[in-house]
């Protein structure tokens, strides 16, 4: 059991959470206008088309912004960074930064990141990020 707050997938987001469970970071792309978007929904938020596809993202991104939480959160020991990661494909998402000191000195904006998968329960694996290898 975990104290962590966990997502409860909905029909519109289930593909995303099924993806993280098998090590895939899934995004959606509009076939009509080629827009890649996140969070998931079964239509393009740019043009409204329902003709969209699901695909596995590269898993590469960069540190766009962050805070270091000194207050804490259920099941998480402060201080820990909460980041906004800009994916190579364009969309941004929230994540924690693993395998990295949780300090301003180590967390440098625009540093390259790569996805890692944190299995929290049998049902839920969270997409997280860590400094990219070789960067």
């Amino acid at each position: 059991m975990t104290d962590r707050i966990l997502p409860i997938p909905t029909p519109e987001t289930r593909h995303f959470w099924e993806g993280t469970r098998i090590g895939e970071l899934r995004l959606q792309r509009c076939i009509a206008c080629d827009n890649t978007y996140f969070p998931p929904r079964p239509f393009c938020p740019d043009c409204g088309s329902r003709d969209v596809s699901i695909y596995a993202a590269s898993g590469r991104g960069a540190l766009h912004s962050y805070i270091i939480n000194h207050i804490g959160a259920p099941g998480m020991k402060p201080p820990f960074a909460v980041a906004i990661v800009e994916l190579e494909e364009g969309p941004r998402m929230m994540a924690n930064i693993h395998d990295c000191p949780q300090t301003p000195e180590a967390l440098v904006l625009d540093m390259p990141l790569e996805v890692s998968f944190e299995k929290v329960t049998d049902e839920i694996t969270l997409p997280q990020f860590k400094p990219a290898k070789g960067a």
Binding site: P39, I71, G72
Partner: peptide
Amino acid sequence: AQFERPFGVSIPPTRFTL
């Protein structure tokens, strides 16, 4: 609920500041 709270944001100082 699905894409922010699981990463440890809670009260406004941990969100609004991001």
